[in-house]
Design a binder for these strands. Structure first.
Length: 555
RNA sequence: GCGCCUGUAGCUCAGAGGAUAGAGCAACGGACUUCUAAUCCGUAGGUCGCAGGUUCGAAUCCUGCCAGGCGCGCCA
């Protein structure tokens, strides 16, 4: 419907302005759903936007555009030209009702499109260091990444998801030393815990595991060096991270190890290549990349005076390698505290002849956990934090994922644990899930009364002409555009808000109209509408990675 | 000091050039012998941080200021 209207206007512009100037051709046609229903089902400000270039009054332009619309449109009730120059479209009921059979026929495919044309995107997210369990902030990134994966796939892109593992350098050393110290403590030795060591309980658990394995096998004392503990710790923590993500419903296509990057010599090669291009210089014993000539604030060290590679060096190599693997677009999801790295990474890509715009970094603001109305203090270093695992055990996957997606990533998020597990109207998750369960429940009752839901005549929709039914049909028909916008703008929270509105409309409808009743034909119509609502809710929840239960029983 | 993000109802947030700025929660008053009341209805609630500017039109764009968060290492 939306597409048809846009096409209609494009044609009208062509007819109105015979010699079509170039700046007219690429003027975007914006079609909105007016807040006030007296302004029609759809409206456009096209005439007002055109008035500058055409040097005519908006009202005149609007009128001549409307005059050039075909007259034989059986799906349009009327067109209005109003005050400053809006064109308002009023659709016939049938035009809105016709979306219902489409939804029911397409099922889970409804809402998808192919605008991505199979473009290949590499989406990197979470990428938490394997030095400790995932915390709540990683959960937000994971929920966002998972939803974006689904959204981009739904709009025709080929998406590969990747988790970059910083399994090298000082932090792995610190991890090893931390475990080693705990291990020796368990053996009764008094060992000084490293100053910057990881203090969490999980370190002790890992040490205990090692001790247990040790007691059965005779380990040579010499094999228990730091690198042994590092490697063991990395594996153990990685396994936990993978399990956590699994229960959170997130799967990665690749787990990309920094260590492997260095081992293959890719970082070294890159630095050599950059040196050859004169992008690198030596100062005070270190190697510096001239990132400031590519928009960064200052130059950055890639190899320290002690010969160690910086994190940034392998990050450059990693991202270059992503480009070389053939992805047209790279999307990274980072915590907002890393925003300072965006510019230098783009600088690196640009200096090597790649378009920095190919890389999009989504910065996710911090999450504050709230319990009993107060923020929960967290510090990774001190080992005081609530893990994603604990949150999942407490509130469940669905509530967690949904709540993470109720905000723009730009906005900081207060995650209220008590609210998330409340089975009440304060909790937005159940509101939407309940609408779906309600649809299923109505359909079940209908079946028990002899309605054959699976073989309803989908053309029986003409009885749906109450304002509530019109509104529902229209909102359902906006779903594909909503998916498209959410994907293009990389903003899954739009789907969350859409869902809230759809659920609200259905709950209202349910409370004001009886779906199953004596009038068989009307019942059929309303069952079709309900089925369509259920389908769209389920599709949208799927995009968010939240389940759509068919029954909900209050505990 | 510099950079990024944010400032919208009591609280948490949508809205990012258009028409009378919206939702949820909280508050107050109502609706269950009914297809699930995890629902619904009604009431109330606003100087869109402040000040200029751009234009037919600004919560939205530009500039300055104020407030909060985060960053500004040869840390990761």
């Amino acid at each position: 419907m939306r597409d048809q209207l846009i096409q209609l206007m494009q044609e009208a512009i062509h007819v109105t302005q015979k010699p079509l100037s170039k700046n007219l051709q690429d003027i975007p046609i914006v079609l909105t759903v007016p807040k006030n229903e007296s302004y029609g089902d759809y409206a456009t400000n096209l005439a007002m936007n055109l008035s500058k270039t055409l040097k005519q009054s908006p009202m005149k332009i609007a009128e001549s555009l409307v005059r050039n619309f075909p007259t034989d449109l059986n799906w349009l009730e009327k067109i209005e030209v109003v005050k400053p120059g809006f064109i308002n479209f009023f659709l016939k009921d049938k035009a809105l009702q016709d979306i219902l059979p489409v939804i029911i026929t397409q099922k889970e495919a409804f809402g998808q499109n192919q605008r991505g044309k199979g473009g290949e995107i590499l989406l990197e997210f979470v990428s938490a260091n394997p030095t400790g369990p995932l915390h709540i902030g990683h959960g937000r990134g994971a929920a966002l990444g998972g939803a974006l994966t689904n959204l981009l796939k739904a709009t025709g892109y080929q998406v590969t998801t990747e988790y970059y593992l910083n399994d090298l350098g000082t932090q792995m050393e610190t991890l090893g030393r931390s475990i080693q110290a705990r291990f020796r403590e368990l053996q009764g030795e008094v060992d000084l815990f490293p100053e910057n060591g990881y203090k969490g309980e999980y370190i002790k658990n890992i040490a205990a595991d090692i001790l247990q394995e040790n007691s059965t096998e005779a380990f040579a004392e010499s094999s228990l060096d730091v690198s042994f503990f590092s490697r063991y710790g990395r594996q153990a923590i990685l396994k936990d991270i993978q399990e956590d993500l699994e229960t959170f419903g997130i799967r990665f296509d690749h787990w990309f190890s920094e260590e492997s990057l260095v081992r293959q010599g890719l970082v070294e090669n890159l630095i050599q290549a950059m040196e050859d291009k004169g992008l690198i210089y030596r100062k005070e014993g270190a190697l510096w990349f001239k990132s400031s000539t590519f928009g960064d604030e200052k130059d950055r060290v890639v190899v320290r005076a002690n010969g160690a590679l910086t994190y940034f060096a392998s990050d450059m190599a990693y991202h270059l390698q992503k480009v070389n693997r053939g992805y047209q677009r790279l999307i990274d999801i980072w915590g907002a505290d890393h925003h300072g790295y965006v510019q230098r990474l783009k600088a690196a890509l640009q200096s090597l002849g790649h378009d920095p715009k190919a890389l999009t970094v989504i910065l996710v603001q911090l999450v504050t956990l709230i319990r009993e109305g107060k923020p929960v203090a967290m510090s990774t270093r001190a080992g005081e934090f609530i893990t994603l695992r604990e949150v999942l055990d407490e509130v469940g996957k669905d509530a967690a994922r949904y709540i993470f997606l109720t905000r723009r990533s730009d906005s900081p998020l207060d995650f209220d644990l008590d609210l998330a597990k409340k089975q009440s109207n304060e909790n937005p998750v159940y509101y939407v899930q309940y609408a779906h369960a309600r649809v299923c429940s109505v359909l079940d009752v209908a079946r028990s009364q002899g309605f054959e839901i699976e073989s309803l005549d989908l053309t029986t929709v003409h009885r749906l002409n109450s304002p509530e039914e019109r509104r529902l049909c229209k909102h359902l028909s906006e779903y594909p555009e909503e998916v498209n916008q959410a994907a293009m703008k990389l903003e899954p929270h739009r789907i969350t808000f859409y869902l809230g509105e759809l659920a609200a409309q259905f709950h209202y409808y349910y409370n004001h109209h009886r779906i199953i009743q004596a009038d068989r034909e009307l019942s059929d119509s309303r069952l079709i509408l309900s089925l369509a609502v259920g389908t769209v809710i389920k599709n949208a929840l799927n995009l968010l990675g939240v389940s759509a239960p068919e029954k909900m029983v209050r505990e």
